[in-house]
């Protein structure tokens, strides 16, 4: 895959809205046929990236290419090859769902009506209702069907399943997998980590307009910590002294701790000497990946100094701190 040119390539993208820096030297690359998970909290710059890729916004500096071309200049020809699902789908209230789907398919030229009807069926959408009567989930379905039924090489999906119920979420994953098998590329931004985990070949994590980590899921796991729950004959407290072991909790014989991804082997041989009765090891979930980045952010900045809230820091806290970071940046 590495020899073919990337479908999306951005280099050092910077986008500022007045005093707020929305994108801060963002570099992103997506290969053909790749489903790329794009993770980050609200306000991290995911939607701004999408809108730059669509040529609706113009970057202040840096370069952006979609299929090797400039989306601002060549928007129309590029849009023939891509489809977009906005994060917050607003539809024309006096059109029916079916009409919106057809409008978008026709704007791209001839389309496969069988495919369109099949997707309407699979997503369980009533296409005869006016969109003003649709719930958020149903509006989302309309945009999804319009995008997924289009014969395009690239899908830009901005939190596409917000508002969908779990059944529809499963349908969505199924359809995206089918498209992936056909060699389409997908940029999938999401909060729903399980979804990204299930679908993505590679993942980029964006924070405050900057990609903080990028790679395959296993590469990212390598860079992070594995959680180990172990019961041993002799006390396992000795592991607490190791530099690559974190957050050690001990309850009688049971010890729970996190170990850096590249030191798991050493810890295992240490534990073996202590007499393992039972052991459970969790690979890091994406929640942990994200929380680690934002958790670090919190503790570094001393937002919750001394209260220990960094570990229990909620998502909202993390978001607030990201925004705070953005704001401090503009001052400096």
């Amino acid at each position: 895959m590495s020899e073919s040119p990337p479908v999306i390539r951005t280099q050092d993208l910077v986008k500022e809205f007045g005093p707020v820096r929305a994108l801060d030297h963002l570099s992103l690359s997506i290969a053909p046929g790749e489903v790329h998970g794009y993770l980050g909290p609200n306000g991290a710059g995911k939607s701004v990236t999408m809108r730059i890729l669509l040529g609706l916004l113009r970057p202040d500096s840096g370069s952006v290419e979609v299929f090797g071309r400039d989306p601002w200049r060549d928007a129309v020809s590029l849009h023939e090859r891509l489809a977009y699902v906005p994060g917050d789908v607003e539809l024309w209230p006096n059109l029916t769902g079916g009409e919106v789907i057809d409008l978008f398919l026709r704007l791209r030229g001839p389309y496969d009506k069988v495919r369109r009807d099949e997707l309407v069926e699979r997503f369980g959408l009533d296409p005869r209702k006016k969109t003003r009567t649709y719930s958020k989930g149903n509006r989302q379905k309309v945009a999804l069907i319009a995008a997924l039924a289009a014969d395009v090489d690239l899908l830009l999906l901005d939190e596409p399943t917000a508002g969908l119920d779990p059944l529809m979420e499963a349908v969505f994953q199924e359809v995206v997998k089918e498209l992936k098998d056909q060699g389409r590329s997908v940029l999938l931004s999401s909060h729903i980590l399980a979804q990204v985990e299930a679908l993505s070949d590679r993942i980029s994590i964006i924070r405050a307009g900057h990609i903080v980590e990028s790679g395959t899921l296993s590469e990212l796991r390598h860079m992070t910590r594995t959680t180990i729950e172990v019961e041993t004959d002799r006390s396992a407290e000795s592991v607490a002294g190791l530099s690559f072991v974190h957050d050690v909790h001990t309850e009688a014989e049971r010890t729970v701790f996190e170990v850096d991804g590249d030191h798991v082997g050493e810890v295992m041989s240490l534990l073996a000497d202590l007499g393992i009765r039972s052991i459970v090891a969790h690979p890091p979930t994406l929640e942990q990946l994200l929380m680690r980045h934002y958790g670090d952010d919190l503790s570094q900045r001393g937002v919750s100094s001394g209260t220990g809230a960094a570990t229990s820091g909620t998502r909202a806290d993390a978001d607030a701190s990201v925004r705070a970071t953005t704001r401090t940046k503009k001052v400096s």
Binding site: W92, N94, T96, G98, E99, L103, K129, T133
Partner: peptide, 26 residues
């Protein structure tokens, strides 16, 4: 009562002018 509409768009809707017309019509 709100009425049910068309399940599929008329051919005239599939163009930018068709979209504009439906937006501004009301």
């Amino acid at each position: 009562p709100g009425r049910l509409g068309r399940a599929e768009a008329k051919p005239s809707l599939g163009t930018p002018a068709g979209m504009a017309f439906r937006t501004l019509k009301g």
